[in-house]
Structures are given as structure tokens and as C-alpha cells.
Design a protein around this nucleic acid. Sequence first.
DNA 1: ATTATATCCGACTATTGTAATCCGATTTTT
DNA 2: AAAAATCGGATTACAATAGTCGGATATAAT
Lengths: 135, 135
Amino acid sequence: MIKLSKKIEYGILALQYIAIHSDKIISAKEISEQMGIPYEFLSKTLQQLMKKGLIQSQQGIKGGYVLSKKPSDLTVKDIIIALEGKASFLDCFVSSKGLVCDRSPNCTIKNPMERLQSKVMQVFGTTTIEEIAAN
Amino acid sequence: MIKLSKKIEYGILALQYIAIHSDKIISAKEISEQMGIPYEFLSKTLQQLMKKGLIQSQQGIKGGYVLSKKPSDLTVKDIIIALEGKASFLDCFVSSKGLVCDRSPNCTIKNPMERLQSKVMQVFGTTTIEEIAAN
DNA sequence: ATTATATCCGACTATTGTAATCCGATTTTT
DNA sequence: AAAAATCGGATTACAATAGTCGGATATAAT
């Protein structure tokens, strides 16, 4: 299905929340309670965003997360790639050289689908957290 | 994941094949063999596309499928909606009035996500089978 | 008429991916 | 030392996708 996963949904919600409350450091617990997101799952998601450098973490009591970049420099595309590693419509595009799809190299939809995908990615790449936070 | 399902992939491949060979009626078997798609699964998909009026069928020996519309009037969006009933990123947008998401009506990402979705849908809605068949 | 080849249709199964949970370890402030 | 937070792996539960099976119906050719 052409649907965003819960992980990405939670990621967007969390980053939006952190962006709005950028004056202080935000814990996973606070986001979980305020946004109604399962704590454990959210923690995993935040850790993943932290590993990919989208946010920075502070351990220990009074710890939490802050954004690494300005909300205007943080796009939905960044979030998708951080949380799913790739962002490809069909298996054909997963690896740029290693062709996975069994129709390759004579796949009749590879080129047009690649064009379609890059158009969609451009939409994701130009939608920022700043814009989302502004509503 | 932001991925197209196999059903949609097969649907696009099949419609492309039918569009290219529009001089004759095309059976599911032929598409299955030529495109390397599981026959039973493809049949189901074609029947679904037929029910939604994207293609027309002819039963019996020498039967098969032809397009209902011109390839230039048939979009990827049409195919997604025909095969998945909806085309929405988050559960919020499934029903226009009945709010499904538990954050509603105070969801902080509903509006921006709705805008994002309509942009993506516009991309799908302007990508035609004709364009895909042309490669 | 019979046969061959096709669509049609529902039910079923197998596999995969998502979503969520559990448990413990580490870090840091109080 | 205790409390509150991040870290991290392993595991489970559930849902959706992908694929299969068996039979019914339709139609053209023989």
C-alpha cells in the first residue's frame, strides 16, 4: 500500500513536537504522553533518528533530544530515509548497481517508474518540519 | 514502507502490455508468461481492474482483455485506487468525515500531511500508461 | 455436442513486514 | 546512592501482502 508506516508517522510527530518546543530538551516520555505514542516504540524511533544524525541526545536524568538541524533544513524525505534506509517504490531501485528485480535488465517499467519515483521524492524532499510545525 | 505493492506493480505491467499490444485481445496467460507474473495472482488483479472498469473482458476461448480507455487517459492514480480502494498516507484520510485517527480532531499533522498527500497524488494522477508504455 | 481455452470467484495458506513489548544495561543529575 | 533518562537486543503479536487451490461459467472451434 502507498501508506506511511507508523514509525514514520511517529517520527514526524516527534520531530514536529521537538521543533515547536525547541527552547528546551525533550524526553521521549514527554512526547509519548503528549502525542499518545507507545513509549517503547517511540524510543526506538528516536534512537534511530539520533543514529542517523537528525537529532542529538542527552542521556541521564534531565536528558532528552534536540534537533541537529534547523526545522527548515529537515525534510520528510530525510525522515523516511533515516527510518527505512531507502525510499524506493519497487525493488528495482533498492540498489543502484545490483539489480534485484527478476525482470532486469529488460524491465519495461524501470525507467518510467524511476522518473515517477524521483518526482515523488522531490515532493517529500521539499516538505520541511518547519512547514509541518506551522500547520 | 513507501512502496508500491506487487499487485500494483503487476497491474501497471499488465496495462502497459495491453496498451502496447492494443491491436489484439490479450489473455492473462500471455501476460503472465511474457512478463513473468504468477498466473493466478495476475488473474485476480485483472479481474479487479475489470470490475473497476479500467479494462474490458471477453470470456471463453480466444478471450482476454482490452483497455476501456485510451492509454493517455489512464493514470497510475486510477490503478492504485482501483486496486487498493483508497490512496491515503495515514489513516486520518481514509474516510472524509469519519475520523479514524485517535489524535483527531486535534491532530497536529493532519493538515500538512493532507497537503503533502495531495501533491503526491497529483504526481500519480498525471503519470499515464501512455507515458509508461513509451518508456 | 463436445472439447479446449479462457474468464470468473471464493476460500485458503504461506510469507513477510509492521507494530509493539520485554528486559536489562548504561549514563547522568540530584 | 537513587532516580530518571537514553541505549540496545531479543522476542512476540498482529496484519497485510503474496500466492495457491478448486471449481464454476462462458465461448469459440472442431
